[in-house]
Simulated assay, not measured.
Amino acid sequence: MTWLVTGGAGYIGAHIVRALGDAGLSPVVIDDLSSGHEEFVPAGVPFARGTILDRDLVEQTLRAHDVEGVIHVAGFKYAGVSVARPLHTFAQNVEGTRVVLEAMEAAGVSKIVFSSSAAVYGTPDVDLVTEDLPKRPASPYGESKLIGEWLLRDQAVATAGSEHPLRHTSLRYFNVVGSADPAVYDTSPHNLFPLVFEALLEGRTPRIYGDDYATPDGTNVRDYVHVADIAAAHVVAAQRLTTGEPIEPAYNLGSHNGLSVRQIMDAMARVTGIGFTAEITPRRPGDPDRIVATGDVAARDLDWRNRYTLDEMVRSGWEARRAAR
């Protein structure tokens, strides 16, 4: 049984590819390498280099490998940058998803797991984010992910009476960290873990943007979840779609508790053995005090749980980054 992973040469996608293989499923990858790395794709996994905007390439790949379903990870994920580049963001995330769905319909492929985002909620003023919370995205990126979910919903309605009715689910996740393979690490120039790792490797002092938030230690509180847990949830979702079991249209992959930026910094110093006192700089506009989600529904259906401690998340990410030097 073969599953196509769009964006399978990226940090999250490459972990999903490995998790599929471990589960006895055969992955195939499409990636344009705009942010991914071909060396992240395991040896022996078929790899098509190109953009998901290329409908012919997507359809040909689906047909050539007799693909059962798609795990759609490819996209432009930088919320802050999306404000300056909304047209690029919508081209990659909205048009890209539309093209993937069109190619799937043409090839008779009717199952899709969509990598969505907590950005669909915007900045909710609640202690715990649940799936039924109103969607108020605060960036073009968040809007593009919400539209992607709508595209899946509408295509499922449109194909309900066809030979290949679309079955789908969207997984909304937050801050993905760590590594489950020393050959794969987070290369994002915007995420907290790689920013701290690069600072420490270069002898610079990591920064905290604001320490006057309404949280116990004054720094932002967010969900941080290990990439291996995220990958495992995608595989279970794919299996559930294949077996025909009931599945929700969307799931939060949340930690339920959250961690503060200062807690992350303390763990970074503890695990790496590099002592430092983070530099406090002004807040970034629009950063809310706290965003933490439950994972209760995903725990019920997708065997979702947080299997890693904070120190384990830091250690796995740090070791993978150092192995790449």
Rank of each mutant, 00 (worst) to 15 (best):
F114Q: 14
S116D: 10
H168K: 10
D56R: 15
V28L: 02
Y251G: 07
D311C: 01
N252K: 05
V5Y: 02
V261S: 04
R290W: 03
R325E: 15
S35I: 07
W150E: 13
G148K: 07
G275R: 12
G108M: 05
V297E: 14
K145Y: 02
D186G: 08
A323S: 12
D181E: 02
D266M: 02
G21A: 13
P42I: 00
Q60R: 15
L151T: 02
E95M: 13
N220H: 15
I208D: 04
V225F: 07
A158N: 01
P134E: 11
A233H: 06
A43C: 05
H226R: 10
A299M: 01
E202M: 02
E143H: 13
Y209T: 11
P42H: 00
L253C: 03
R322I: 07
G44N: 01
Q155I: 06
A91K: 12
S144L: 04
G317C: 08
I147Y: 05
I16V: 14
V236H: 11
L33T: 07
S116Y: 11
W318A: 04
L253A: 08
G161V: 08
V227E: 02
D66H: 09
R136K: 13
H226D: 10
L25V: 02
L128K: 13
E163G: 08
K77C: 11
V67F: 07
F197N: 13
P282C: 08
P46Q: 10
V70P: 00
D54K: 01
S26V: 12
A119M: 08
P206F: 01
A232G: 07
H234R: 09
Q239M: 05
G142A: 06
F76I: 04
R204I: 04
N191M: 11
H88N: 10
G108R: 05
P216E: 03
S255M: 06
A79M: 03
V45Q: 04
R315C: 02
P42G: 00
D211N: 15
G161A: 09
L33G: 03
E131H: 12
V157K: 13
E131S: 10
D229G: 09
A183H: 12
G69R: 00
T123N: 15
V126Y: 09
D266F: 00
G178F: 01
R307D: 15
W318K: 07
A106W: 06
L152G: 06
V109M: 04
V120E: 14
S34P: 08
T277I: 03
E95C: 08
G21F: 06
A237T: 08
R325M: 13
I12M: 10
T219D: 03
P165A: 09
R262Y: 01
R307K: 10
D229F: 09
I112V: 15
R283F: 01
I147T: 11
D154C: 10
G44T: 04
I291F: 00
T2C: 09
R300C: 02
K145P: 00
V83E: 10
A231W: 00
A233L: 00
A156Y: 00
F114Y: 15
